[in-house]
């Protein structure tokens, strides 16, 4: 069965979606990612969708789910590189993905994750004092 590869980079997990996903593939990715977060203790997940030519409500829901689940598992999620046509269509469809962090590209996304982690550590430190 085909799977979308998940790369580990330090504290972060990286996923680049490059194929037109069928629904089962999207579900598998969701399962794989959550179990990987748990296994590796990752602090952040970056999903690059710049190669995706379409996001429908199913894939949109998967993205929202991953973001929500990883938050519970104490990891931040950033979705990067959404194409303009995809963004316009998604809004028209009625999906705004509220609560999902976004960034223009992988670079900015990584910055965002690092800032999140730094912020969390500072918070945790304060609570311990």
């Amino acid at each position: 069965m085909d799977r979308i590869p998940i790369l580990r980079m330090g504290d972060f997990l990286l996923v680049t979606i490059q194929v037109d996903m069928h629904d089962q593939l999207a579900m598998t990715l969701q399962d794989d990612l959550t179990s990987q977060i748990e296994k590796t203790g990752a602090k952040g997940v970056l999903i690059d969708i710049s190669a995706l030519e379409m996001v429908d409500s199913f894939i949109g829901r998967m993205i929202a789910n991953i973001s929500g689940m990883s938050r519970i598992l104490d990891a931040s999620t950033v979705v990067v590189g959404m194409q303009p046509a995809v963004a316009i269509t998604l809004v028209e469809l009625g999906l705004s993905l509220a609560g999902v962090q976004t960034a223009l590209n992988v670079d900015r996304g990584m910055q965002r994750l690092r800032a999140d982690v730094a912020g969390k550590e500072a918070d945790d430190g304060r609570h311990q004092e």
């Binding site: 030519e53 379409m54 429908d56 409500s57 199913f58 995809v86 316009i88 269509t89 028209e92």
Partner: peptide
């Protein structure tokens, strides 16, 4: 245009599902 293509493909995906 690209946006119209994407809208049509997305609508088709929803309805096919």
């Amino acid at each position: 245009g690209l946006v119209d293509q994407t809208k049509m493909v997305t609508a088709a995906s929803e309805l096919a599902r």
